[in-house]
Design a protein around this nucleic acid. Structure first.
Lengths: 150, 150
DNA sequence: AAATAATAGTTGATTTTGTAACTAACAAGC
DNA sequence: GCTTGTTAGTTACAAAATCAACTATTATTT
């Protein structure tokens, strides 16, 4: 029995299953950008995400980044350590609450961010062009809805 | 300098970056289904994908699954071993080419597939409902385009 | 037909992730 | 003010993903 049998199939096709499709599209669309931050700066996924949060929104704490990007605190912790080692960011213990560290990009971190941001911008434009600009903005809206449903 | 500075920002917002959005949405939308196949059957992501390919399309080789799902052969190999151990599938060496193994679900594998397929169907319907049925079908179209661009 | 290259799939070493337990600091209740 | 509970972040160990090297077989070249 396979799903080519219409009786038992009941109209399920793996290729249309949203979680599967989303993952496939996400992997495919991440490949090229990944190659850049990996080969050019030896970074991992969580690392560029942390870098971009700091570059994009300015000083943040590990917790804030984790909440906004929905990344687990252990991943953030390791990414922050590595970015600190590479002198892309510095930690400043909070005065009010000594458990908290404020993270900010160094000037090196900022220039890495700006470089990758340009790559990201061009890549995003290419993707948007591929599916049409109107569709792309609609797509973004739907993805935001799905991403924030939790 | 952060991107709140309009001069240097040049209109990039991480929250709109398609690869980021796609990954966030994919992760969010996979969570609930993941919980089911993980807790109910102790499966991993690649394992349910292999199971679904065989359930959905019938007999396939490891290579074919890997190509269609864009999964690396080592991942497929390990997933197939585990599914075989659990008696969800059987391997049949090809007559024509003894490097090749034809994979088919056992009846146990089929019933696991059918169970998970129903879960997937319900979950997919819920997601589609959430963003509206028309939008959902448009979304699927765009995701397919992005997933298959490579 | 022997040598070389290519292919399907597996295995092993390394890297990365996930889970749980941990430290240190703060907050609340009593 | 001391006990109990929470929170920010780290660390240790187990699980999983990645990458390269491997076996066995088939295809190609000469």
């Amino acid at each position: 029995m396979t799903d080519t049998d219409p009786e038992k199939n009941d109209a399920f096709d793996l290729q249309d299953f949203l979680p599967y499709l989303l993952n496939r599209a996400a992997e495919e669309c991440s490949l090229e950008f990944q190659r850049v931050y990996k080969e050019r700066y030896g970074m991992l996924r969580t690392e560029w995400r942390v870098l971009f949060h700091l570059g994009n929104y300015g000083e943040m704490t590990a917790k804030e980044i984790g909440e906004r990007a929905r990344i687990h605190k252990t991943k953030i912790s390791r990414a922050v350590s590595k970015l600190e080692q590479r002198r892309y960011l510095t930690r400043t213990p909070s005065q009010n609450d000594r458990r908290v560290e404020h993270l900010t990009l160094t000037s090196t971190g900022q220039s890495v961010y700006r470089d990758l941001r340009e790559v990201a911008k061009r890549y995003d434009a290419r993707l948007a062009n591929m599916i049409g600009l109107d569709d792309a903005s609609q797509l973004r809206g739907m993805l935001r809805k799905l991403a924030d449903m939790g």
